[in-house]
Measured scan of single mutants.
Amino acid sequence: MFYPNSPQTSPQLTQIPYGQQYAMMQRQIQQPYHPFATTEPQARLYPYHYQGPIQQEQGGFITQQSTAASPQYVQMRVTPVDQSIMSGYPNQTANGSSSSSFNYNIHPQQQQQQQQQQQQLRHHAMPVGSVPLQDDRYRKQLIVNYLAPDVTSTDLHELFSRFGELDGARIIYDKQTNMSKGYGFVYFCHAEDAKEAVERMSGYEFHGKWLKVGYSTNPLNIVPSNSSPYVHAGSRGAAG
């Protein structure tokens, strides 16, 4: 039997160049792979992502010199942007860049009308829970959420009447099932009393439920100042 490094198959040491006398086997001759043993700084910083320098080929596509990437890492192929796409944008300079302001050559009167329309939209648009300043009635009506099913309009009136005089209180019921929808409205005579009720009743436990109280901004629920107070009856038909 002959071994790869046996004296019968191995040459004389004098015939082997210096430095390879003890590297006779194939696994010894093959050098191990060192990912950080390279002179390129990109490979030292990113050993798993770097795959060699990027070269520009004919046709405008950018390719990489090395083989496919590892399945664990996804390499994105980048193509140059066609400058003709950006030619339609206004205020574009000769080098292809555009300024931040756009001039669509709008007539001054049209621009003024658009600004007025935007101001009107901001004036009428009102986020949930906010209180408008032009109508004091919005500051007097509250919406009470997360009410228990057994709470009546009379219970709601008695709960909030300790903060001040009320114009009314009612629970909203479903017309088909005649069941409470879980929320109601309270109408105060003074805005200061309503503000105190919002601050003190939010998070209050009532009939096993934690109440959420806020201003009601729905104009359909506003009680006119010259109208008669609501009837605080315990029956659902009268309260709904």
Rank of each mutant, 00 (worst) to 15 (best):
Q109Y: 13
Q42P: 04
T177S: 06
S228N: 12
G59H: 13
R77M: 15
P108Y: 15
N95A: 09
S130Y: 14
S161E: 05
Q64G: 12
V151S: 02
I54E: 04
Q42E: 15
Q110H: 11
M179P: 02
I29A: 02
Y3F: 13
E205R: 02
D135V: 03
Q30P: 09
F61M: 07
Y89Q: 05
Y46F: 10
D135C: 01
Q12Y: 11
D155K: 05
Y104M: 15
N95W: 08
I171P: 09
E196L: 06
Y104V: 11
T152Q: 09
R44D: 03
S235T: 04
V223R: 09
N95G: 09
I54W: 10
A239M: 01
Q42Y: 07
A239D: 05
A23H: 08
P132S: 12
R200W: 02
Y22R: 09
V198N: 03
R77D: 05
E192G: 03
R236M: 05
M86V: 08
Y89D: 02
D167K: 01
Y50R: 02
V151L: 06
D155S: 09
G240L: 09
R236W: 01
Y73N: 06
G208M: 02
S84E: 13
T9G: 13
I222A: 02
A233V: 12
R137W: 01
W210N: 02
R77V: 15
I171T: 02
P4E: 02
T14G: 06
V78Q: 04
Q118F: 13
S225A: 06
E199Y: 05
S97I: 08
Y89R: 07
Q116P: 11
R170D: 00
S100A: 11
M25Q: 04
E205L: 09
F2P: 02
A43D: 10
A233R: 11
V231M: 04
Y73G: 04
Q116M: 14
V78C: 09
S98V: 14
P35M: 13
V128Y: 14
T63Q: 10
G164E: 02
D150S: 12
I62H: 06
Y173Q: 05
S84Y: 15
V213A: 02
Q120D: 06
S228A: 07
E158M: 14
V151I: 02
T79W: 15
K212H: 02
Q51F: 15
Q42H: 13
D155E: 14
I143M: 01
I85V: 10
Y215R: 00
Y3K: 03
K209C: 00
Q134P: 11
L156K: 03
H34Q: 04
Y173F: 10
T177E: 01
I222L: 04
T9Q: 13
N145E: 00
R170V: 00
G237H: 10
H190P: 04
A194W: 01
D167Y: 11
N226S: 06
Y187A: 00
V231F: 11
F102K: 02
P149R: 09
L211M: 05
S100N: 14
Q12R: 05
G19I: 06
G240E: 06
Y138R: 06
R44C: 15
Y215M: 01
F188L: 03
Y89G: 10
Q51C: 12
I106A: 11
Q176A: 07
P80M: 02
N95R: 06
Q30A: 02
T177Q: 04
E192F: 13
I85D: 11
R137E: 02
P224F: 11
G52D: 08
N95I: 08
F61G: 02
D136M: 02
T177G: 01
D193Q: 09
Q8W: 11
G168L: 03
P149F: 04
M201Y: 04
S227T: 11
Y73I: 10
L133A: 04
D174W: 01
V144G: 02
S228M: 11
M76L: 13
A233D: 02
H190T: 04
D82F: 15
A94V: 13
A23N: 12
M24T: 07
K181G: 00
Q141I: 00
G168E: 00
E40P: 05
Y138T: 05
S153H: 08
H107F: 15
Y73W: 11
I29D: 15
E165R: 14
G237I: 03
L142I: 03
E158S: 10
T67F: 14
Q109D: 04
K140N: 02
A197W: 08
G168R: 12
P108D: 05
I171S: 02
K140I: 00
P219Q: 01
S202M: 09
D150C: 08
H207P: 01
Q92P: 07
Q141R: 00
N105D: 07
E40R: 03
S225L: 06
K195H: 10
V186C: 09
V74P: 05
S66R: 08
A148K: 02
Y48S: 07
L142G: 02
V131K: 05
F2Q: 06
A194I: 01
P132H: 13
Q114L: 10
L159K: 01
N178A: 11
R137D: 01
P53A: 12
L220S: 03
P80T: 08
Y46S: 04
Y46P: 03
A197I: 01
P71K: 03
F160G: 02
L159N: 07
Q176R: 08
V78D: 03
Q109V: 13
V213P: 02
L220H: 02
E196V: 08
H157R: 08
N218W: 00
M76K: 03
K195A: 10
Y18F: 13
I16A: 03
P35C: 15
P219F: 01
K195M: 09
F61P: 03
E57S: 10
Y73D: 01
N221S: 09
E199P: 08
C189E: 01
S153F: 12
M86D: 05
Q83R: 11
I143N: 01
Y73S: 04
I222F: 08
Q51T: 13
Q72D: 08
S6L: 14
D174Y: 05
A125D: 11
V81P: 03
V151E: 03
V131P: 05
F61N: 02
Q120G: 07
G59S: 08
G208C: 10
A43P: 09
A94D: 08
P41D: 06
P7I: 14
L156M: 06
Q112K: 06
Q83A: 09
P41K: 09
H157C: 08
Y138K: 01
A191T: 07
T79P: 09
Q117A: 12
Y173M: 10
K209Y: 00
P219E: 00
S99T: 11
S216P: 00
E165D: 08
L133H: 14
P71E: 08
Y183K: 00
H34V: 05
N91K: 09
Q55V: 14
K209S: 00
P108T: 11
Q51L: 13
A23W: 15
N95F: 15
R236I: 05
V128G: 10
Q30Y: 13
F2G: 01
L159S: 02
E205H: 07
Y3S: 05
T63N: 11
Q21I: 08
I16M: 11
Q113S: 10
Q51E: 13
Y33H: 03
F206M: 11
E196Q: 07
A94L: 13
K181S: 01
K175N: 11
Y104F: 06
G214L: 01
P32F: 07
Y204F: 09
E199C: 07
E57Q: 14
T93P: 11
S97V: 09
Q113F: 14
R236N: 06
T63I: 15
D174T: 01
N5S: 06
H34R: 11
P4K: 04
Y50M: 15
I222H: 08
R139A: 05
P132Y: 15
Y48V: 11
Q30K: 13
I222C: 06
Q51A: 08
V74T: 08
Y89M: 01
N226W: 12
F2H: 08
S235N: 07
T79E: 03
P53F: 15
G60S: 07
L211A: 01
P71S: 05
M179K: 06
G240Y: 14
H232T: 06
V186T: 01
N103I: 14
Y46L: 06
L147Q: 01
R122L: 13
Q58K: 04
Q109R: 07
S130E: 12
F61C: 11
R162H: 10
A37N: 08
S66M: 12
Q115L: 13
I222V: 07
P41V: 13
T67G: 09
P149Q: 08
L220Y: 04
E196M: 08
P7T: 11
Q117L: 12
G164Q: 03
A239I: 14
Q120R: 11
L13G: 06
Q117R: 10
A23M: 04
F163M: 03
A69S: 12
